[in-house]
């Protein structure tokens, strides 16, 4: 076992922080430790919190963390903000709403940039979740970037997905669109202290009534993170969902999907690194790109040629 592994398993914050940096940087140094700690993962309940920007995801996560801490549970939080596609930099500002927790040794908060990953997540998220899990967190809360209608990858990793809406986002047709509205295990209507909350809840209820093949009624919880309303009820609904997953065997199905997504991600990353970094292939790749630019070759034939060389 590596020294770092032992420190992770004992919950040492500096070790957790350092290993997350290594996986974010795609450093090969992280891999032996990731292998060591893996047997200790899978215990934490992973809660994804997604929704449009400004819907109050950070404040809601703070309030949920406070409730879980009152029960003595250890809480890990991963807050994702967008990386600039232009400069590669990022302004990670979700912590501002959570600073009261930063001196609580039972809470570990990490801000991460998307670093080019689409879908509202970040490339190192699976690893970061495994690290917090192995370090003994009971609850892991993931805050996605502020999403539009189509960023739904959080379901690949979360056991329970909360979709956070606020009053005034549009008419009832918005609620039957595909994408974001399909992934909720629980709908949260936040900012319930503002006007229009009843209408938003009613429209959601109407949408859920239209669904026919449901195994479980999807709850809607109105909350006000600012006024600390509805948080205990939300926590109760999360617990109920967790129990539902275990009773219905869906827990196993979801976890299998998560492990498959994680495995595919690792293979994709390695395969791409192999094709684009391997010295022997680099020449072929460069020549193909030149030929594609000159329209002497199409990208499909180029891919056939490159894959042919690998599989030979």
């Amino acid at each position: 076992m590596t020294d770092l592994s032992a420190r992770i398993l004992s919950g040492d914050p500096r070790a957790i922080a350092r290993l997350i940096t290594l996986v974010e940087n795609e450093s090969a140094d992280a891999i032996p430790t990731m292998k060591h700690i893996y047997a200790h993962t899978g215990r934490a309940h992973v809660i994804g919190v997604t929704g449009v920007m400004g819907s109050g995801k950070s404040s809601l996560i703070y309030e949920l963390a406070v409730v879980y801490r009152a029960e003595g549970k250890k809480v890990g939080i991963i807050a994702i903000d967008p990386t600039s596609p232009f400069s590669g930099g990022a302004l990670l500002g979700d912590r501002i709403r959570m600073m009261e927790l930063s001196t609580d040794s039972g809470v570990f908060i990490r801000s991460m940039g998307t670093r080019g990953m689409m879908g509202g997540l970040t490339g190192a998220l699976y690893d970061a979740v495994d690290i917090l899990d192995a370090a003994g967190m009971d609850i892991i809360l993931i805050e996605t970037v502020g999403v539009g209608q189509d960023e739904v990858d959080i379901v690949k990793i979360a056991d329970t997905t909360l979709v956070v809406l606020v009053p005034g986002l549009g008419d009832s047709v918005q609620t039957i669109k595909a994408g974001l509205m399909e992934i909720a295990d629980i709908f949260v209507v936040n900012k319930a202290d503002t006007p229009g909350v009843e209408q938003t809840v009613a429209e959601l209820e109407a949408m859920l009534d239209l669904a026919t093949a449901q195994t479980r009624a999807i709850p809607i919880v109105a909350t006000s993170a600012k006024q600390r309303q509805g948080i205990s009820l939300l926590k109760q609904r999360i617990t109920e969902h967790s129990e539902f997953l275990k009773q219905s065997k869906q827990f196993e199905t979801r976890r299998r999907q998560r492990y498959e997504a994680e495995l595919v991600e690792i293979i994709k990353k390695r395969l791409l690194a192999f094709i684009f970094d391997e010295a022997t292939l680099r020449d072929t790749v460069d020549r193909c790109i030149t030929q594609i630019s000159n329209k002497q070759l199409d990208p499909y034939s180029a891919a056939d040629e490159i894959l042919g060389r690998i599989l030979k």
């Binding site: 990386t83 400069s87 930099g89 990022a90 990670l92 500002g93 912590r95 501002i96 801000s111 940039g113």
Partner: peptide
């Protein structure tokens, strides 16, 4: 941020 750094603001 514009210089390519990841900035956490408290």
């Amino acid at each position: 941020r514009d210089a390519g750094m990841e900035v956490v603001y408290t």
